[in-house]
Amino acid sequence: MQMEQTDLKAAADRVYRYLMFSSPESWGGHEWAEWAMERNRWDWNPGVGLIAAADYGAFCGAEGMIQAVEVWTEQNIGGSEKLKVINSLAPYAIFPLLYRQTGNRFYKDKAEEMAIWLIKEAPRTRNGAFEHTVTESASFSEQVWADTVFMAILFLARTARLAGRKVLAEEAMSQTLLHLQTLQDKETGMLFHGWNGETGDWMSAARWNRANAWIAVGVPMIAEEAGELCGDMKLIGELRERYSRLAETLVRCQNESGLWPTVLDRPYFYEETSGSAGIACGLYKAVRAGWIPAELALASADRAVAAVLTQVREDGAVLGVSGGTPVLGSVEAYDHVPTFPTLYGQGLVLLLFVEKLRMIAST
C-alpha cells in the first residue's frame, strides 16, 4: 500500500507539473497543440486543469500550488470580461477555494455575480436546461450537452455552498437532474453526448466516453456542494437512482485493459484516457458519498488507475486524450478525433489520482 501511494503521488506530481509549467517545445507538433496546452486563456480547457490543480493543492496542503492557481487567475482574469458563456464559467469553479484560502473578497463577490448571471440571464433550451454556449464563434442553439454539468453547474454548486444561498443550490441540483433526464438512454443507462431541442433528437446519438465522464465525475462533486443546502429529497432520490444506473452500465462496458473506448458501446473504437479517468474518478467519489456500493465500483476504478498510469509520460504528459469534440455528425466520426496532451486531459487524470490517494489515506 505504501509503495502504491508513493508511486501514485509521484505520478500525480508529474501530471501537475506538466499541467502548470510545461513549455511549448514539449507539446508536440499537432496543429491543435497550442490550443490544447496554452494555459493563458480564460476558457473551459484551462479551467478543468485549474480545478484539478487547486484540488491537488488543497489535498496536499501545498500553499505553493494554491498560489500558482491564484497567479494564473490574476494573469488571466481580464479575459473573463470578454464574454459570458457556459464554457467560460469553468475557471470560476476555483474561486470559492481561493476565497477560503486567501480571504480576498473579490473571489466571493465575482463568483456570486456570475452565478446570478447564470441562473437569470444565461440562454436556456425549451425544456429549461442551460443551452451549451462556447467561447468560439459557433452557436449550438437549443442544444443540451453533458459538458455543461462540469463546466458550469459545478461552479454554481460550489458558489451556492460558499454563499449559503438555497436558490443557487436548488438550481444546481435541478439542472443536474434535468441534464440526466435529457441525455440518459433509457435502454442502456449510458448518456448521449447532446440533445437538440429544436429537432427533438440526440443528433448523432453517440454515447461518447468523455460526455459520460463529465457527468460521472461532476454529479457527486455537485451533490457534495449543493445537495444538503438544496434539501429536495425527491430530486436527490431520482438523481441517485439515475446515477446508480449510469455507474452500473459504465462498469459493464469497461474494456479488459481498464480503459473505456471513446464511444462506450463501440468496444473496437480506440481507448480514450481522459474520459476513462473521469469515469473512474466519479466511481470513487460516488462510493465515498455512499451513492453506489463499493463492491460495484472499486475494482473497476482501481483497474482504470493502473491503466491510466501507463498513459502518463515521464515528463507528466498524459497520452491518449482526444481533442476538443463538439457533438459530431456521426458515431464513427468520434473514432477519428486525434489524440494529444491537453489541459483538460491533465486535469481529469490529476483528479483521478487525487481521489485514489484520498481513498488510500482514508483506509
Rank of each mutant, 00 (worst) to 15 (best):
T159D: 03
R161P: 03
K166R: 14
W117C: 11
A129V: 02
L168F: 04
A111R: 02
Q143T: 14
N104A: 14
F130V: 06
A152K: 00
A111I: 08
D109M: 01
R165F: 02
Y99V: 09
E171T: 03
S141G: 10
L162Y: 06
R158G: 08
R100H: 07
T102E: 09
E113K: 11
M173V: 04
A152C: 07
F150T: 01
T102P: 03
E136Y: 04
E112S: 11
A138G: 03
A111H: 05
V134P: 00
T135G: 15
P91C: 03
F140M: 14
A111F: 11
V144W: 10
K110N: 06
G128E: 03
K108F: 13
N127E: 10
I153A: 13
T148W: 03
F95T: 11
A160S: 14
E170G: 05
Q101P: 00
Q101V: 14
E136N: 12
T135N: 13
K110I: 15
N127L: 14
E112K: 05
M173A: 05
A160I: 04
N104I: 09
V149S: 07
D147F: 03
K120W: 08
T133S: 05
L97W: 04
G103H: 00
E136K: 15
R126F: 13
N104T: 15
T133Y: 01
Y99E: 09
E121I: 07
I94R: 06
A146W: 00
R158S: 12
A93R: 03
R158P: 02
T133W: 02
R105K: 09
A146V: 07
R126M: 15
F155D: 08
A169L: 12
F140K: 10
S139L: 14
R105L: 09
L97A: 14
T125G: 10
A172P: 01
T135D: 15
V144M: 12
I119V: 07
T133K: 01
A152P: 03
W145N: 01
H132S: 09
A115C: 12
G164I: 05
L98Q: 05
H132A: 03
H132N: 07
